[in-house]
């Protein structure tokens, strides 16, 4: 068996044993169900909200949650094994450094896929069952949200590996991971908002503003989910921001994919230079 899959299998087994899969799934299912049933309050109805509303509210939550989940899964992947003393032995086996990282990545990705598919999927299925009429576009939007949530989580898994390969202590990795999360998910938007409102809106051109949204994975995720479909764009008030839905979808998807690939590659580079 290829070393990558041996490590992946081990990682999944470990996540099952440590109740990682269970708790992540329950967490996501809890939020998704709550938003499905309570999320209709903003639009003034009681009961199960239209799926489109759930997509808007759930993706706004996901933008904070999945990056955190991804980092929590990954921040000690290298430094934790190194501290526990399992890394030295593992690397003495016929395992290449990249195989170690890719194996872990697929394993952690599987945890995310299970958590999102089961957690968000269950809420989606329940909503569809309870609603009388449902638009195909809503189902598609929900599907896109699930897939892009996994993608967003994987961005931060890759970033977590980079941190984990870079630092010498687990505690440093945890702190750095938190800083990365805060910067990308929270502070970036504050700064952007500040720039936008200062100088009577003359600070940023539309083109620059859109580009600045696209280069941040969290904002790219927002753009993808809130502007791709006419329905969600209207619900979220993003219709004014984005003129061309398809081009934006493509651009934000590319941004997310790049954000998965580049940090993972970078982590591989850092890790390959590390002396265990």
């Amino acid at each position: 068996m290829n070393a990558v899959f041996v490590i992946t299998a081990q990682e999944i087994l470990d996540a099952l044993r440590n109740k990682w899969v269970l708790s992540a799934t329950l967490l996501l299912a809890g939020f998704a169900l709550a938003l499905t049933y309570l999320g209709s309050a903003p639009v003034g109805t009681v009961g199960v909200a239209p799926l489109g509303v759930t997509v808007v509210s759930l993706s706004s939550l996901t933008v904070f949650l999945l990056p955190l989940l991804g980092l929590l899964l990954s921040y000690d992947a290298v430094v934790g094994e190194s501290e526990r003393g399992t890394l030295l032995l593992l690397l003495s086996y016929p395992v290449r450094r990249w195989q170690f990282l890719v194996g872990k990545f697929i394993g952690h990705l599987a945890v995310l896929v299970i958590a999102v598919a089961v957690g968000y999927g269950a809420a989606g299925v329940l909503a569809v069952m309870r609603l009388e009429e449902i638009a195909a576009q809503e189902v598609a939007a929900y599907g896109v949200m699930m897939a892009s949530s996994i993608l967003l989580g994987s961005v931060f898994i890759g970033l977590g590996y980079g941190i984990s390969s870079f630092v010498r202590e687990r505690a440093t990795a945890a702190g750095l991971a938190l800083a990365v999360w805060l910067t990308i998910v929270v502070i970036y938007d504050f700064v952007l908002l500040g720039a936008l409102t200062s100088g009577n809106g003359a600070g940023l051109s539309d083109g620059l503003f859109n580009s600045l949204l696209l280069v941040n994975p969290a904002d790219a995720y927002r753009l993808l989910n809130l502007s791709t479909f006419e329905l969600t764009a209207n619900l979220s008030g993003m219709a004014g921001v984005v003129s061309n839905g398809h081009a934006t979808a493509l651009a934000s998807l590319s941004s997310l994919l790049l954000w998965v690939a580049v940090p993972l590659f970078g982590a591989g580079l850092i890790f390959s230079r590390k002396e265990p």
Partner: peptide, 30 residues
């Protein structure tokens, strides 16, 4: 690496696994 055996100082293993699972894991890697 396939022809080597190594026992590091103060060896440690993933704690959530059983001894048999750990050994099988290393056997598969080799």
């Amino acid at each position: 690496a396939r022809r080597l055996g190594f026992l590091p100082e103060a060896v440690n293993f993933p704690g959530a696994m059983t001894g048999l699972e750990v050994l099988k894991f290393y056997a598969r890697l080799k």
